[in-house]
């Protein structure tokens, strides 16, 4: 039996995180000829997973960047709404030297940022009340992540952003404790939110990145040859993750429609962007106007 390498993710085996972890396992074991025995485990608490990588109680973790900003504050810039036009734009930036520079910052916190992954673009859903334009969301209680950037942006749009543990969200939506929530399609689909929410708006208001991290001590203990193996596996893992997100987004919207959800295309994303404008000034102060501009206007070379 090879040396055990534990990697955790926060979702079902058959999900955009599960398939990525399995691909990582498959490639590492194949390329290293079973010198390493990769063990994939599910760990719902993503904060705990990142902390464990830092401590070295597990070698790697993959998942959304939700809690990662609390470890590496620089990556919060990626949470700014309407930063990326589409998947090509987001992935292009993250795979370029801009993304690499951000991954470099993980080292100071005892981790290696291996590759950027993704949760997908986040979309808004609501229960009883239909939103036809951004002005309709004013005064609505929308569950957001405990993420300062997200909350600030929604506040600017007049929403009452309500951070809440994900485990409490289903009952809160059911009982109407909050009027809506926002998440990527794979999460909406896997969470069966169609039973709790009537409307889905394809707002794509913010891109939710993911990341595969490994412990710095573990990494430093690898030979150059083995490092290459893990890097290749990480790349294969991203591929599996992204193609699953695409598939979920395509078939997921249809599936949600089939299950009876009213899906609203949002042709006028600029209106939402406009609604969040007052927050943008703050973000420019916080992250640097030039940095945001570079990210927004990034084009493939």
């Amino acid at each position: 039996q090879g040396k055990q390498v534990t990697i955790t993710h926060s979702s079902a085996t058959n999900s955009h995180w599960g398939v990525a972890a399995l691909e990582f396992e498959k490639v590492v074991e194949a390329l290293s000829k079973n010198k390493y025995n990769v063990v994939v485990q599910r760990l719902d608490n993503e904060r705990e997973a990142v902390e464990s990588v830092q401590l070295g109680s597990q070698e790697c973790a993959l998942g959304s960047t939700g809690p990662v900003g609390n470890f590496v504050p620089d990556i919060r810039v990626l949470d700014v709404p309407f930063l990326f036009r589409d998947y090509a734009h987001a992935r292009g930036v993250l795979d370029s030297e801009v993304g690499d520079k951000l991954l470099e910052k993980f080292k100071a916190r005892g981790m290696i940022g291996m590759v950027w992954m993704e949760n997908g673009f986040r979309h808004l859903t609501t229960g009883k009340k239909e939103v036809q334009s951004p002005s309709d969301v004013r005064g609505m209680k929308i569950r957001t992540m405990e993420n300062q950037v997200h909350m600030e942006a929604w506040k600017a749009a007049g929403v009452l952003p309500t951070p809440m543990a994900f485990s409490e969200l289903p009952s809160a939506l059911q009982q109407g404790t909050v009027d809506g929530q926002e998440n990527p399609i794979p999460v909406i689909l896997a969470g069966n939110f169609d039973q709790l929410q009537k409307y889905l708006y394809l707002t794509s208001h913010v891109y939710s990145p993911g990341v595969l991290v490994c412990g710095l001590d573990f990494w430093n203990g690898l030979s150059a040859e083995d490092k290459k193996i893990f890097q290749d596996a990480a790349k294969a893992s991203v591929k599996a993750n992204r193609s699953r997100v695409e598939e979920d987004e395509r078939s997921g919207v249809q599936e949600l429609r089939r299950r009876g959800m009213e899906v609203r295309e949002v042709t006028n994303r600029e209106a939402y962007q406009e609604a969040m404008k007052t927050a943008v000034a703050n973000f420019e102060k916080q992250f640097g106007a030039d940095v945001l501009k570079t990210l927004r206007e990034w084009r493939p070379k």
């Binding site: 705990e48 401590l55 070295g56 109680s57 409490e168």
Partner: peptide
Amino acid sequence: NLPLTVTAQQVFVALDRFP
């Protein structure tokens, strides 16, 4: 051969749940 700091981490993680 897990780091023993896990002891304290798990105590914290167990209690750090809103429900």
